[in-house]
Amino acid sequence: MSNPGSHAIPTDRGPVEAQASTTDRPLEGFIPRSGAGLPFGILGVSSTQPPDKPHTRIDFQFSRAAFKSSKIPFQVPYPVPFRLLGDERKGWIDTTYLARDGRLRIARGNKGTVFILAKDDPPAS
Rank of each mutant, 00 (worst) to 15 (best):
I9S: 06
P39V: 07
A20L: 11
P81W: 14
L38N: 01
K90S: 03
S63F: 00
I106K: 15
G41R: 06
L117I: 09
E88Q: 13
A8R: 10
S21Y: 00
K71T: 09
V45R: 11
V45D: 04
V76M: 11
G35P: 00
F115R: 05
G112W: 03
Q75T: 10
G35L: 02
T95M: 14
G102N: 06
A118D: 06
P50V: 07
D12H: 07
P77L: 08
Q75M: 09
D94E: 13
P79D: 14
R13E: 10
S2L: 13
L43I: 02
G37T: 01
Q49N: 13
L43C: 03
D94S: 09
G112Y: 04
F115K: 02
V76G: 03
P77G: 06
D87W: 00
I72Y: 09
R100I: 00
Y97C: 04
I93N: 00
S6L: 09
G109E: 15
P81N: 14
D87S: 12
V45M: 03
D87R: 01
P79F: 01
D120T: 10
A66W: 06
T23I: 04
R105H: 04
P10E: 13
I72D: 06
L43M: 12
L84E: 10
R64W: 02
P73S: 12
L117E: 15
G41L: 10
S125P: 14
L38Q: 03
E28L: 09
A66C: 01
R25K: 10
S46V: 00
A66E: 11
I31L: 05
G37D: 01
K71L: 12
R100G: 07
D94F: 02
P73W: 05
D87C: 01
V76S: 06
S47D: 13
K68A: 10
R103P: 00
P54H: 12
Q75Y: 05
R89P: 00
H7R: 14
H7F: 12
L85I: 04
P81D: 08
P77Q: 08
I42E: 01
S70H: 08
R64F: 00
P26V: 13
L38E: 03
A8Q: 11
E88M: 08
L104R: 14
I31D: 02
E28Q: 14
T56P: 03
